[in-house]
Amino acid sequence: MTQTAAGEGEVGFPAPIHGDRRLRRWLGSRWQPGRWVNIGLPYFWLLLFFFLPFVIVFQISLAEPQIAQPPYTALTEWVDEAVLQVRLNLGNYALVVEDELYRAAFLNSLWVGLVSTLGCLLIGYPMAYAIATAPERWRVPLLMMIILPFWTSFLIRVYAWIGILKGNGLLNNFLLALGLIDEPLTILHTQTAVYIGVVYSYLPFMVLPLYANLSRLDMTLLEAAADLGCRPWRAFLRVTLPLSLPGILAGSLLVFIPVVGEFVIPDLLGGPDSLMVGRMLWTEFFSNKDWPLASALALVLLALLVVPFVALQRWQSRLEEER
């Protein structure tokens, strides 16, 4: 009896706690300078290191080259010290879009990006799956092995591939010694060498997001599929694969986007026929000193990459919504 009475007493006065919380919430929404710093810093960062450079490059792309310092004309000019004249040159964009060479370079870059992404996916998916399903104590060492190459400079690793792929390199000597081939294969300075180098270099970017996705996969779902009559391979196709789609997308974007603009690997491993936008850019900037044309190339490349990226992002968020 006494217990019931005490219980009622507590229920009777909840107001002070409630009011206090409301006050704090009111204060909280207005009085947090830390919050503005929190939100503002990344925006400031983006403004300074992404938006401003973008504006500068965009401005250069509308100028004309000249032999001077800087090597492009100014967009604005004072005529008679009274009229501000603005001159915009769209010729660079017209050239990039119309010229066969540039168009071929863009198409080739996109193609190399596509093939390399598929290559990374085909090799990276089984790796990520194996790591995600490995016993707990093996996972960290296996992940370390994926990350370990990052400890060596990217350039050195690409140079190492020259040593492996060249005429009397490691690979050819090995195959000759085994008697599998009679004369050295020409791999270096071909498109194949570019693919090998790109897939090798970008594999971790595919494996890591896929691993993050697959390690969260609920294995009882596969058991449920088996229980309902699904052979392991079909269970993979109907359960694992669709559920790992976000990981596949993330990995593919992380590989595709930088590969399309890749310059170092085609330059070092590719032959004269490895026509890629990255190399074109380099040539225009440093050999031809045509900064405006190079800037236009860079911006067209950016547009080409941003469009599919945004489309994928939309599609993914729609998928999420549907769930």
């Binding site: 779902l221 058991e223 229980d227 309902l228 052979r231 559920l243």
Partner: peptide
């Protein structure tokens, strides 16, 4: 399991989320 005339209701239900 995939050829047994047996079905199971899992503790976590294991419904396919997609």
């Amino acid at each position: 399991a995939y050829r047994r005339p047996v079905n199971m209701m899992f503790q976590s239900y294991a419904l396919f989320p997609h």
